[in-house]
């Protein structure tokens, strides 16, 4: 198989509470896999199990072919982790902490470290208690990307960073990917996931409910169309898979299920198309649809 990371039927119980129910996940070499889901869905639990901090109740999890619980120390020599909440010792400076982290992980070189510090515009001479959340995240990011790790596990790594730094982060991910390394990225910033990830796994209430490439997942959602036709598309509302239709004369704005697209296009073509704009579904749309809860308000109109 050769997968860097394999998770099979992973389950975790906390007392009566089932945090994870038979989760399956895989990361191949050179792949960036996105791991998304609402708060409390089990992303952090999964990651903590992968890092050997929690023990799974049942199931199998392997990195580099080794068990994540019993071989944790060996695995971690080739792994880099960036947590969502970075906690640092207040009296050590950023530079000291980065050096410490690199030594404890066991790889990486100074030149790379210094380059990253410059790219992330970090001042390493200040005590970490003076750092904002964003700066603490930068320390974790520099410490991770300065190593020679083969697998990067990133848990909401950029939630405190502004777009300038977000861009630097994305460049780093692309660089390691080009080197054939793998990344597991858990994030709420769906634009980031869309841009970086080859595949995406969606978790909800402890179960993986969707998994595949973005293209595969797009099939399961809708496309937004704005059309203007020669003759008014009066029959449009009768088509199955057409939603939220707003029509005024010959103009129409609506959503259509991906698998109905062909039929609708044929119909519009028959009416004579003057203008047609289509917006492919974003990951956010997909996400929203899969997570709609009763009472939550939809707002496609806000786009």
């Amino acid at each position: 198989m050769g997968a860097i990371l394999t998770v099979r039927d992973l389950s975790k119980q906390f007392g009566h509470f089932s945090a994870l129910k038979k989760v399956n996940l895989e990361v191949e070499p050179g792949e960036v896999v996105g791991f998304i889901g609402p708060n409390g869905a089990g992303k952090s639990t999964t990651i903590r199990i992968l890092l050997g901090m929690l023990q799974a109740t049942s199931g199998d999890a392997r990195i580099f072919g080794r068990d994540v619980w019993s071989d944790a120390v060996e695995i971690h020599k080739r792994l880099a982790y960036v947590p969502g909440d970075v906690n640092l010792w207040p009296n050590l400076t950023g530079g000291e902490i980065i050096d410490l982290f690199m030594r404890l992980q066991g790889s990486g070189d100074r030149a790379q470290r210094d380059r990253l510090i410059a790219r992330f515009e970090l001042d390493p001479g200040k005590k970490s208690r003076t750092y904002s959340k964003g700066n603490r995240q930068k320390i974790a990011l520099v410490s991770a990307f300065a190593t020679d790790a083969e697998l990067f596990i990133l848990d909401e790594p950029t939630s405190g960073l502004d777009p300038l730094m977000e861009r630097v982060f994305q460049e780093c991910v692309e660089e390691v990917k080009a080197q054939g390394k793998s990344v597991l990225l858990s994030s709420h910033i769906l634009s980031e996931v869309e841009r970086l990830c080859d595949r995406v796994a969606i978790i909800r209430e402890g179960e993986i409910i969707e998994s595949g490439t973005l293209n595969e997942l797009r099939h399961l959602t809708r496309i937004l169309l704005r059309s203007e036709t020669v003759s008014p598309p009066e029959q449009l509302e009768t088509f199955p898979g057409v939603h939220d239709l707003e029509r005024s004369g010959s103009r129409a704005v609506f959503q259509v299920d991906s698998d109905q697209l062909g039929a609708v296009m044929n119909y519009l073509a028959g009416l004579g198309i003057l203008k047609l704009e289509s917006t492919p579904p974003t990951l956010e749309d997909l996400f929203m649809r899969r997570y709609e809860q009763s009472g939550a308000k939809r707002s496609e109109t806000e786009r």
């Binding site: 889901g37 609402p38 708060n39 969502g84 959340k133 909401e156 939630s159 405190g160 709420h188 769906l190 956010e284 996400f287 929203m288 997570y291 709609e292 809860q293 939550a296 308000k297 707002s299």
Partner: peptide
């Protein structure tokens, strides 16, 4: 001040609503 940091998109949406 940075109200939705760390909040998933669905919750973010309902907060904005």
């Amino acid at each position: 001040d940075e109200p939705t940091v760390g909040i998933d998109p669905v919750m973010r949406q309902s907060i904005w609503d």
